[in-house]
Design a protein around this nucleic acid. Structure first.
Lengths: 382, 382
DNA sequence: TCGGTTAGTTCGGGAGACGAACAAACTCTA
DNA sequence: TAGAGTTTGTTCGTCTCCCGAACTAACCGA
């Protein structure tokens, strides 16, 4: 409701969003929803009854609890609409189907090298895979989120993928037009790291997410929303400087964290070829590998100290391939940040992502869910 | 309208805010406001007539323009309510009185060393000075903004000044309770650098503001609002790292920009005692001083490159004492950012503040104005 | 002087939330 | 076991606020 005049329906939409948001936590009766949201019991009934009618919400038997007439709990129906999270990656497609309560219903990963395929082909295929999965679930689709491997500007059908370092053929395309709509609306399109951040909202409404893949990406979540940036490239934490006259970087600068804590740098420093190997050596106690991990974590800690001084969030989540290396990186990052006046633990928490490589699809589903619950008409349109 | 249920009055408030916002630009007739906002002519009249009645808005004579009945322009009355911007600083109080159109009506600076005075005394005096100024203007006060020299957590009466490096006696106080309300509401309380940023909204809705005084402060403005931070200390750009093993900093870390581009570092490097002297020497072409300015600007550019990679804004404004040194700092900052892949000019603009030392009071007035226009009931309450 | 056009006002209607009243369902107590 | 007390869900009248259409007012041009 940032722009444009408000009319009566906007009030309904707002209040319905409030109710669905409250319902996200646990099943509740109309009366408890009323006290939770500040609405009247009557209003709650008027707003939710159409959704019960439409099969979006299910109504349980009265649950006795203390004195008075017991309330009948409402929850998101197990046969009601779902949202899709779709992540288009260099080497495949990752899809997740979630219920409106956020629970994962089904997930799948299809491996395929996308580097030689044109944008229309890649996104059409992604959409097909996602729709097949939804068909298998047999529940209507209320919306979708689409994670893409590069910065995005604009929203919905007009969203354009500005560049894609690892998939040059996708550059400049409009992903939502290539997939078509899901339910009645185009998918929410976002950068994979930005959307990946959203998968970690359980950690709180404010945090920084840093994810390593080929480069270092990230997302900054403030008040439950990802910082978009005016050109769609916010959260490029890989190019935060840790040493002004340090190693040359592909961006043209020198001393960017990516050159110290990026996967290529880390693997090179450790003298191994791939992450699983690195993990195994670290677990075996290889001192050279442990040293490399400590140095990478320390560089990351320097960069994150800068970031946190700027955006002031109380938590850091390490994701992507970093998640697999959390046992060694997290302590190193913590130590460096503590050294820089940010008391890790009570003040700034540092932790490894529990999602790992599927964070983008999970976050895309979450973005779709947020959209649908904020725009509940999408649930009744079909 | 982030939280809580929406009722009919919220719609009115929203739409009235929309109208006043549209009116901020230039006088407009009811009909043109209607087309600008998407409301009906009738609705515009219903919403604005009480404000005309109350003397907040003034109505002009019909202005003939083309065919048809000419509209009667409305604007913020020159005798209507004003907002106050108050900045409490180490060495004095800066106050600005602004009309609802944002025009400055009156300003004043009272010098006084605050270091030995307790918080209650300092803020009571600031409030008295501000109220005196408002009395002299003879227009009612609709609201105020209060800039304080340290990080702030909370809002309104509950806002607490977490610390004040240069005025230790103010630490932990609740400024809004010490000044009392202005109009019917407590002042908007914010950090001087955060609010100072708001003074530069003319440059666009998204930018980074960096201000040097004793330390380096800053504010990040996104979509016209200052990033608050979860602990009230967002925008601490002074502690962005430029050289991980560089000079030790008071924050406990090492290599923070503040140690390279802060005023003490800059003056020490240049071998002069104060900013005016520095300016004079630079203007005279003193090579040592020019070198020091170049080095400081370059360090600042490194830090700002990091910041911009994180928050992705298209402009940087140098304020505080930096503003006076813009002629030499701006080119150095630009050069360093360009070197790091951020094309200064078209992509990221770098410029010096036109407000200089009065930015905090100006920004505080702007914050108050935004609050009042978003909550137009404040205009009718008195 | 009379259409054409735009501005401002008035009035009926609709959307949506509130509050009070009421029926339903359960617990507790005498 | 009956009734009092309590809480839930529903219904209905009322209020606020907006829209759209109709009407009057004011100005231009032929």
């Amino acid at each position: 409701m940032t722009d444009g005049p408000a009319r009566a329906p906007a009030v309904r939409r707002h209040n319905l969003g409030l109710l669905l948001d409250a319902l996200r936590g646990a099943p509740s009766s109309r009366a408890s929803l009323a006290t939770a949201t500040g609405l009247t019991r009557g209003t709650v009934a008027v707003l939710l009854d159409p959704l019960v009618e439409a099969g979006v919400l299910a109504e349980g038997v009265p649950t006795r609890s203390g004195v008075g007439r017991p309330g009948r709990p409402l929850w998101f129906a197990a046969t009601g609409p779902v949202v899709l999270g779709i992540s288009v990656e260099v080497d495949g497609i990752d899809v997740r189907v979630s219920g409106l309560d956020g629970e994962t219903v089904l997930r799948a990963r299809r491996r395929r090298d996308h580097r030689r395929h044109p944008a229309a082909d890649v996104f059409a295929r992604a959409a097909r895979v996602a729709r097949e999965l939804a068909d298998r679930v047999g529940r209507p689709v209320a919306g979708a989120g689409l994670a893409v491997p590069g910065p995005v500007r604009g929203d919905g059908d007009d969203a354009v993928l500005l560049q894609a370092p690892n998939l040059p053929l996708l550059r400049g395309c409009r992903p939502a037009r290539l997939t078509g709509p899901f339910g009645t609306a185009p998918p929410v399109v976002g950068n994979e790291a930005s959307l990946g951040a959203l998968a970690h909202l359980g950690e709180g409404p404010d945090f920084v997410y840093v994810s390593a893949d080929v480069g270092i990406g990230g997302g900054i979540v403030l008040d439950g929303r990802v910082l978009p940036g005016s050109r769609g490239v916010a959260g490029e934490i890989g190019h935060v400087v840790v040493e002004r006259d340090g190693r040359a970087c592909g961006c043209g600068g020198s001393g960017c964290v990516e050159q110290y804590a990026g996967l290529p740098a880390l693997l090179g420093d450790a003298g191994v070829a791939a992450v699983p190997e690195l993990r195994a050596a670290a677990r075996a106690g290889d001192p050279a590998v442990l040293g490399a991990l400590g140095r990478a974590g320390s560089a990351l800690g320097v960069a994150l100290a800068s970031v946190i001084h700027v955006v002031d969030v109380p938590a850091v989540v390490l994701g992507g391939r970093y998640a697999e290396l959390g046992d060694w990186l997290v302590p190193a990052v913590r130590a460096e940040m503590r050294r820089r006046g940010l008391t890790a633990g009570p003040e700034v928490e540092v932790l490894a992502s529990a999602h790992g490589r599927s964070a983008a699809a999970a976050g895309a589903a979450r973005a779709a869910l947020d959209r649908v619950l904020a725009e509940p008409d999408l649930l009744l349109a079909r």
